[in-house]
Amino acid sequence: MHLSRDVVLLITHSGDFFTIDRVAESLSKKGVQPFRLDTDKFPLEVQLTAHFDKSKSYHTIECNNHSISTEQVQVVWMRRIWEPKLSQELAPKFREACIRESQATLDGFWDSLKEARWVDNLERIDYASNKLRQLRIASEVGFVIPQTLVTNKAQAAREFFQQVKGKMVSKLLTALSRSMEANSSFFLYTSIVKEEDLQDAESLRYCPMVFQEQIPKQQELRVVYVNGNVFVGALNADMYVAAKVDWRKPGVEVGAWQHHQLPDEVIRRLKAFMGKFGLLFGALDFIVTPSGEYVFLEINPVGEWGMLEKDLHLPIASAIADALLQRKNE
């Protein structure tokens, strides 16, 4: 069935739930038609066609017995892009080529939507995903940031450990592959580095790492920015003593999310920060220290917020729908 009206395209994946449904529901209530595209279902369950000739181009998306032409897409919500999921029946030696070609097709397909309003633009998301750039710009707008070292030099890591008086954490600039092995996933969360770990620091020569001073925390904040609106959830650090370092780790008893009001000065800096990246959406992490200082950690331009909507009833989905439907230059 070909949908006849203009649509808002929701770019996501088959594992997405709650947040995507809330935004779709909010868009429907506002009288527009959402169309969900699960990127990992391409090419097996989603069909894309792109026609080009000398006078025009014409593209269609088909999935779940519905089809749209990209001319109908006025607005795009760039929620997530996942790698194509191919079945085991495919000969393994062709798997990589099929994935690569499918991803290239999707990348090309987004170009057919260049006239649409995106939340957010893919190039801006990529630009903002650079964690070192985030720290530089955070510092420029006046945020406090942790002392940070990025190095593949063992001696530098050891000296930094002394500089921060042995209170050091580590992380990577990029995500590990979602699955380093079939049926299991490995993650690297922000981890405490102990002195004995550094006995093996020579192995940094194979891959650099990010080291930061461990910031004492009273609260950990997830701040969600949507087109000038700010939504905040706070976790009390003493509620998840076992983790102390990374509340995002599964199985960490985080306690209840709580409402939190950011100081005006932090909000002003936040808006300047988002303005520098040209982003309409972002999920940011901050630490509030025992002395009440707000320390910027990072921004995820496509970060999570469902727990804040669900537990704190913050109207984030509605704000995203409003941002999607706002006219250009409004």
């Binding site: 993650f187 690297l188 981890s191 940094l204 194979y206």
Partner: peptide
């Protein structure tokens, strides 16, 4: 083979 430093925190 050789294990990079980050692997100890996986």
């Amino acid at each position: 083979g050789v294990i990079p430093f980050f692997a100890r925190f996986l």
